[in-house]
């Protein structure tokens, strides 16, 4: 987008999830995106076999946040040898839940007329950040106090050259909302909130010091294992 235009959330480029040699010639690459509040798995299917492929279907294993296909896989026509087709598969978050390791791991089964194939992929937790994740300021202060300090995780984010306002704007495109900003001893302290699709809240303090390319990120969340994934998202959003 141009100056002042929202650029939307960052989407990781597609990577190969299922190499053709492991799937009798079917190659699958993909990524995840949240577009206008709807989660999508974006897929490219390539037929590297010598015969036509058809009758595609997809299924997910139970996973940490209940991700499930919200409809069938829309492969419009049989896929000819050397042909690639691209599609977006809308996802719901009301599927069966089972805690995965890592938390953001997703096990997928894809079938076609030849066989059934399995692969695992990992989604950025930011696809689960909902649009109404701006916490009331009063609630933020109470919750921040309420979560004990030993549940606080701290991370450094290096080589970041945005000022705090630019960082805040970029994070908001990914549904990370700045609730308050204070400047103390030359450091901008941003207090931010995130809400996941399953109702889990994440509270964040981001410290940005003018001229210092290393940000300090402090994350408080009652589900402590979410913090590391939130850190990964900050790295991804702030550096792309």
């Amino acid at each position: 987008g141009g100056v002042g235009m929202p650029t939307g959330a960052y989407v990781v480029p597609k990577t190969i999830w299922l190499p053709a040699m492991k799937a009798k010639g079917l190659e699958i690459s993909g990524t995840f995106a949240r577009r206008a509040g709807v989660l999508h798995m974006e897929l490219s299917l390539t037929n590297k076999a010598m015969s036509v492929m058809s009758d595609f279907a997809v299924q997910f294993n139970r996973n940490s946040f209940g991700l499930a296909p919200a409809g069938p896989l829309q492969v419009v026509a049989p896929l000819n040898p050397n042909q690639t087709t691209e599609m977006g598969l809308p996802l719901s978050t009301v599927g069966p839940v089972m805690k995965m390791e890592p938390l953001n791991n997703l096990q997928v089964a894809v079938k076609n007329n030849i066989d059934v194939f399995y692969f695992s992929c990992q989604y950025p937790i930011s696809i689960l950040f909902v649009e109404d994740g701006k916490m009331e300021r009063q609630v933020f202060l109470a919750t921040w106090k309420d979560i004990p300090n030993d549940s606080e995780a701290q991370y450094q984010i290096k080589d970041c050259h945005l000022n705090s306002d630019a960082a805040s704007a970029r994070l908001q495109s990914s549904n990370i909302f700045t609730i308050a900003k204070r400047t103390v001893d030359g450091q901008d302290m941003l207090y931010q909130s995130i809400k996941l699709t399953n109702g889990i809240w994440v509270l964040v303090e981001l410290r940005v010091q003018t001229g210092n390319p290393t940000y300090m990120l402090s994350v408080k969340c009652r589900a402590a294992e979410v913090s590391q994934l939130v850190h990964q998202c900050y790295e991804m959003v702030l550096k792309n």
């Binding site: 300021r137 009063q138 202060l141 921040w144 204070r182 302290m189 207090y191 402090s218």
Partner: peptide, 20 residues
Amino acid sequence: ELEDGLDEAFSRLAESRTNP
């Protein structure tokens, strides 16, 4: 008044985090 109180509370939080 509540808003003022919240502004003040965030200032205190930031201050306490920087100079504990």
